[in-house]
Design a protein around this nucleic acid. Structure first.
Lengths: 390, 390
DNA sequence: CGGGATTAGTTGTATGAATGAACTTAAGGC
DNA sequence: GCCTTAAGTTCATTCATACAACTAATCCCG
């Protein structure tokens, strides 16, 4: 039985989340009356729910703004600062990262450590990450930590894991949660939700594109990950393994990653893979013929793969992230050309190619946002215990 | 504001639908007490909801079964026969079809007209279909018609249309709903919901696989359509254009349809396209080398395209429908081999290839089921007006 | 054949969440 | 200083579900 019985408490829970979401997603600081108008609930109901959220520490009342028009001045509502926070972490090929966001989306703490984690030892790397997490928790000790989430570049069972396969790290069947819990009390108390790096980056991107959150996010790192976002929801698949665009077979029977990945583009441009994507981008910006040809060739094949995705899923907007964002000015044209040529619905819904808008290292934001979404979806579980009145 | 305020009526609506769905999806005929146990609602609540549904004609009480054990015998509940019905229709390259289902899923009426509708005139064909619909409505005049839906082989805006493109019919930008309304009073009163043929066939297939409704449905007709089903929900995309697997670019840069479609397989086997898929299947069953080679070659390319889908969406079960179902015994092996070789997650979730279980011409069922799903999701809108008590 | 056990379904009261209308509070405008 | 305007609160009402006690209908067993 998938749908569950709705009891009376479900109503309150639903509306509590609705009110909280309405305030948090609003650009301005809405009053109780604004929220009532936006949600369709009555002022009385909104007041009761808001009072509960404020008492629980999930919303804050700001100082009344100077009145602009007649009538009693509104009490502006906003996300509370420094009460509830979520920690996002990431292990990737080139870096480890940790970021702490509060309910308003503000960054309370951030730490990025560059390194080379190809063919690395999981236990060592994860112990290092655990250290960063403990530091972050210490630095934000004044806030309640709602939970943690971890982005990984590979096939990972959504939620508890394990990590099945991370080709570019050289990891396979790693029980990440248990290893982390052994190195960090914070992570033992708040076991991280695991997810694919591209899926989490796409979640951050969806938050940055709230007005039209339907797109394919392509994350060009050493590998090529993708995530499909439909109406703000990530299509992660049954296990969480969706989005392996890098292993799409392209024209000559090879996987896309082998012909349009970071290393492949660098080699095609006559450069060493260790040179890095910035070197390639700089060469292309300077008009280097080999670099431009390499990027254009990769773009055409990427465009073919994306045309297949668009034909399959009816999502016409493509967002370039990761190192593809850095190359966007050169990649955009060949990708768009391939989409225009091969997308069946192009005459009625012209495909677009855009650059990612989310913060750098977006998966860190996405991971933290996953945790915060859990708080917003189940507010009553996170209301601070009220002090008993005397 | 996507999520809407939950008022008290939402609760009842939700639980009304839950109770109705529980009874309809049950294999046996559950009693009120069974429904209460299955849903978690109390017997009192279920009784009240069931009474309302029975009074409204959406559920029926059967004659009490002979008691098998101690205790008061249960009153079995079931879908009512011949009270509420839905009409599914289809225009395809080789046939027109109409089928009427009642809430139990039983076929009340069916009519299939074979023909060749390639490069046909939309107005003429749709007038012919309208005639079939009127006949069907006349033949089932004792039932309340909940609505109609129409399956079309091409890009169609989900719901009201128009039909953008149906390459194999040679239709483009046809306002199907208006044309049909002009030819049929029934369709004028119940404007058909339009959808893609493969999407609707997949819906019927999902109903036949209720125990594990997550799969990719591949419908091999003259074109190749696909539909992705996730947990019973069809991934139709924003406009309803998803699933254009036939236009996936495969190894040599041609669309899949051109190398693995019905006509392509026939030509590769040295047969005329007009011979039909049954001739090809018969030749293969007889061990004809050319036929077997043609099917195996198509299977390998189909497998490549499906491996890309599996890698992208993390759906590991493939269901062959349409003419592919007829060829399944020969297609299965090459498709499975390609999936095993190219699916990244194959070691942890081995791909499967199965034959469609739904009735023949499944899109007719799917279309009717779409309408019935609307009734189940909004039961109070379909409760027959109660007679005022004296 | 009659009482007890057992299960289905009903009745009536209690709970709790949202509603709606009247009310209070706090400003501006003339 | 009084009127208007708008925000927020109070309180009686409504309505769907929960809970518990009850009635109904059957089998089992002595």
């Amino acid at each position: 039985m998938r749908p569950t019985a709705a009891r009376q408490g479900s109503l309150r829970e639903h509306n509590l989340g609705l009110v909280l979401r309405t305030v948090l997603e609003s650009d301005a600081s809405p009053s109780r009356a604004d929220v009532a108008a936006a949600t369709g609930l009555t002022k009385a109901t909104v007041s009761a729910l808001v009072d509960r959220l404020v008492a629980g520490g999930l919303l804050a009342e700001l100082a009344p703004a100077p009145a602009l028009r007649a009538g009693r001045p509104a009490v502006p509502l906003a996300a509370p600062v420094g009460t509830v926070a979520a920690l996002g972490a990431e292990v990737n090929v080139d870096y480890l990262g940790v970021r702490v966001l509060d309910l308003s989306g503000a960054v309370l703490h951030e730490r990025l450590v560059h390194g080379d984690y190809r063919s690395s030892d999981p236990a060592t790397v994860l112990a290092r990450l655990a250290g960063l997490v403990d530091e972050a928790a210490a630095a934000t000790s004044g806030t309640r930590l709602a939970g943690t989430a971890l982005a990984l570049p590979g096939l990972v069972d959504r939620g508890v894991g394990p990590l099945r396969l991370a080709p570019n790290l050289g990891w396979r069947d790693v029980d990440v949660v248990t290893l982390l819990a052994a190195s960090s009390d914070v992570l033992a108390a708040h076991p991280p939700a695991l997810a694919n790096e591209a899926d989490l980056a796409a979640r951050a991107e969806a938050a940055a594109r709230r007005e039209d959150p339907t797109f394919v996010y392509v994350s060009g790192e050493v590998g090529i990950g993708a995530a499909m976002v439909l109406d703000g929801r990530i299509l992660a698949g049954r296990h969480g393994w969706a989005g392996e665009l890098g292993h799409t077979l392209v024209a000559d029977g090879r996987p896309l990653e082998a012909v349009a990945g970071q290393d492949a583009m660098l080699r095609a441009a006559g450069m060493e893979p260790v040179a890095g994507i910035d070197a390639l981008a700089a060469a292309a910006d300077d008009g280097d013929e080999a670099a431009l040809r390499a990027i254009a060739a990769a773009g055409e094949l990427l465009g073919h793969a994306l045309a297949n995705v668009v034909n399959l899923l009816d999502i016409s907007d493509v967002v370039l992230g990761g190192s593809y964002a850095r190359l966007a000015s050169h990649l955009r044209e060949p990708v768009l050309a391939a989409l225009g040529a091969h997308v069946l619905a192009a005459p009625w819904a012209p495909p677009t190619v855009d650059v990612a808008r989310a913060a750098s290292v977006p998966a860190l934001d996405g991971a933290a946002l996953t945790v915060l979404a859990g708080v917003i979806d189940d507010p009553s579980g996170w209301l601070a215990p009220e002090v008993a009145s005397p």
